[in-house]
Design a protein around this nucleic acid. Structure first.
Lengths: 208, 208
DNA sequence: TCTTTATGAATGAAAG
DNA sequence: CTTTCATTCATAAAGA
């Protein structure tokens, strides 16, 4: 993939991706196509399983879900808590609400709520917010490479800060919250299925 | 995709979009998410229809089974920094100087210095030291504990990480062809969907 | 090719 | 809160 272009590859240079309008449009369509395919696959699946048991799919224990066959071999005891996609989703939402410091009581409440979606303790919640805050802050400071190109970068302004950057398949999905893509579904059944899908997928990596 | 190496937004009548790494990463994730969802939906569908013949999915065809083609590889081509020999050399030198904890400011300095030899970010430097320390320590402890782990771990087959990510983008396909991927009917067949996913997959790799 | 190894990155937990 | 550690995941590079 050669889409990467080093702009002014010099010291502390600003590195950006350059795309043509066509390429950009292609991406939009790409995502759109996936969104459509997903919806239809879900519909299809629902139709096919209407009468079926889905025996393996309703296991209470998420980690034993047969769907994980592809990625899960870690059914053994895990030493550290790993938020389920659903839990993460909720945590992120709460975090985004801005109420910075989750009070002691708040933590309790959250823990109880998340407990419905998987094992969790107050400490987990506490740590999560602790880390989330810290890392959120760090990331905010890092991307400030006060670009100063000693290089004779042609006087082209860093134009088009990719402003028209809107490729959400669903109008209500937020560009800066990938996780939301899992839940912002207009379809009830779809949403439910996605919950399982999330579990089945190799978590961690897709939810950062 | 051969990217325009010239970042000049409008030079020579060339219109391009400029994206930051973050934005590119976001797109990558969005597509990856959908690809994963599709993948899992397919798995789910297979599980439910194991008794069926899956006629349309015969492997006899020269083309890879759409199912495999799609689930085999992940559209997770995350780019990751790779230190140049020169950078590595400098990093090692600094590390050997023993000054254990590269303070925040120190990291900035190092980053700037290394930036002269290739793209790099503070995070990269930070991670490098983090890993370097951790692995340096581990290596020291490993030799001793010859504890034979009574690991009765099942014969565990290799995860056969289908890493065949060299999906060749349809070189001969033009952007307008993607329209063919759109689905008109909600009652499209399963195998047909798979076909579309496969195509979508290829397009994804084309960008990511 | 396919498999294995080395290592960049992500993150829960804990120390400071 | 900030910084560090430990573990794990994913991938680029190297090996077979």
């Amino acid at each position: 993939m050669e889409a990467e272009t080093s702009n002014g590859g010099g010291i502390g240079g600003l590195y950006v991706k350059v795309m043509t309008d066509d390429q950009m449009e292609l991406l939009r369509q790409q995502i759109s196509v996936y969104a459509t395919i997903c919806e239809q696959l879900v519909e299809m699946h629902k139709a096919v399983t209407t009468q079926q048991d889905l025996a393996g799919l309703r296991l209470g224990n998420l980690y034993c879900d047969p769907l994980m066959a592809c990625s899960g071999h870690k059914i053994t005891a895990r030493q550290r808590w790993t938020p389920t996609p659903l839990q993460l989703q909720i945590l992120e939402r709460i975090f985004d609400e801005g109420n910075g410091t989750p009070s002691k009581q708040k933590i309790k409440d959250i823990t109880i709520e998340l407990g419905q979606h998987g094992q969790i303790s107050e400490t987990n919640v506490y740590n999560w917010f602790q880390n989330r805050r810290a890392r959120s802050k760090r990331k905010q400071l890092t991307p400030a490479p006060n670009v100063v190109e000693p290089e004779v970068e042609s006087p082209k302004e860093k134009k088009t800060r990719a402003e028209g950057f809107q490729v959400q398949p669903y109008e209500n999905s937020s560009p800066h919250r990938i996780k939301d893509m899992y839940i912002q579904s207009p379809d009830i059944g779809f949403d439910q299925l996605l919950g399982k899908i999330e579990v089945a997928s190799c978590y961690s990596s897709y939810f950062l």
